[in-house]
């Protein structure tokens, strides 16, 4: 096992551990009050006009079947095409889409190169038949993904500097993030363009990594590419860029979360646990003392006599 093996393992462990920790932290937050926002795409037969089950009289007696395909119909164009940005911020769309779609292509490239690496280790011949076509696809993915992502990152960098709104809220990290992403795209692009053995090298790299075997000598740009990619794996989980997976929660657990609290239903236990917690809010009208819980407090009205107010 080489130093490179160690660095890759360390980066992946940090990435996975930090992502899991963030996901667990979000999932362990208590049940919250309903805060859905329409349209909710799983509303069967009503999503097109933004309607909900509340459009029915006695809705609690009716079927609440959810149209999960409807959710996919929203999520797929949103993830792949950034539909929301297209509809609400057209001037940002191309750069943002380019930056994101370039990344998707490189992720696809990484998945493919990993698959081919494993197949190579398993002894399959990658130079003939369908597998050879996949190998030749690698370079195309690297070039298109790298170029598109680089273009998007550069335009976004300029917009962060010049756009009236974006520049007011830009922090140093926004520029560093874009430089970092740009470096990933640029080094991928250069490696694919300048290395005649690009496919062989990248498959060999992954084969060596997954088998803990020998890694072929790479061009300098290849090592630089590996370095910036690994650094990104370590850095990303601690930034707002985790929206790539927390978006699941903002949509499914908040925006589209419309589960009614039915008598004897599954929510009652969670609610009972939430309202039994002690409250320490300090405003006099709350009446909290650190021991009273939410149930104790709601029996009051909030009226505070003048003496307490003054105190």
């Amino acid at each position: 096992m080489s130093i490179l093996h160690g660095l890759v393992i360390l980066s992946l462990v940090i990435f996975i551990a930090a992502i899991v920790a963030r996901a667990v932290r979000i999932m362990r937050t208590p049940i919250h009050l309903r805060w859905e926002l329409y349209p909710v795409p799983h509303e069967k037969g009503r999503a097109a006009h933004g309607g909900s089950m509340l459009e029915e009289t006695d809705w609690w007696t009716k079927s609440k079947d959810k149209d999960h395909l409807g959710e996919l119909g929203v999520m797929i164009p949103e993830i792949l095409l950034l539909k929301g940005v297209w509809e609400h911020n057209r001037k940002l769309w191309f750069s943002s889409w380019g930056m994101h779609f370039g990344l998707y292509l490189l992720i696809g490239h990484l998945a493919l190169v990993t698959l081919l690496g494993i197949l190579g280790v398993a002894g399959l011949d990658l130079s003939t038949g369908f597998l050879s076509i996949l190998v030749s696809l690698l370079k195309a993915l690297a070039i298109v993904g790298g170029a598109l992502g680089l273009l998007g990152s550069v335009i976004l960098f300029v917009m962060r500097l010049s756009d009236n709104g974006m520049k007011r809220f830009a922090s140093p990290s926004h520029f560093v993030n874009l430089i970092h992403l740009g470096a990933i795209y640029l080094t991928t692009l250069l490696w694919a363009l300048l290395d005649p053995q690009y496919a062989l090298h990248s498959v060999g790299l992954l084969a060596g990594l997954v088998s803990f075997g020998e890694i072929p000598a790479l061009p300098v740009v290849g090592y630089v590419n590996i370095a910036v990619v690994l650094l990104f794996f370590v850095y990303l989980p601690f930034t707002h860029m985790t929206h790539f997976f927390t978006k699941y929660f903002t949509y499914h657990e908040v925006r589209w979360e419309d589960e009614p609290n039915m008598p004897g239903g599954p929510l009652e236990g969670k609610i009972a646990a939430a309202v039994s917690q002690p409250v320490t809010w300090a405003a006099p009208h709350i009446g909290a003392d650190g021991k009273k819980n939410w149930v104790d407090l709601v029996s009051g009205t909030g009226k505070v006599d003048d003496e307490k107010k003054e105190a």
């Binding site: 911020n89 926004h174 985790t242 927390t246």
Partner: peptide, 9 residues
């Protein structure tokens, strides 16, 4: 924790 500050809104 997840706003990209893109001003799309």
């Amino acid at each position: 924790e997840h706003c990209a500050k893109c001003q799309t809104c």
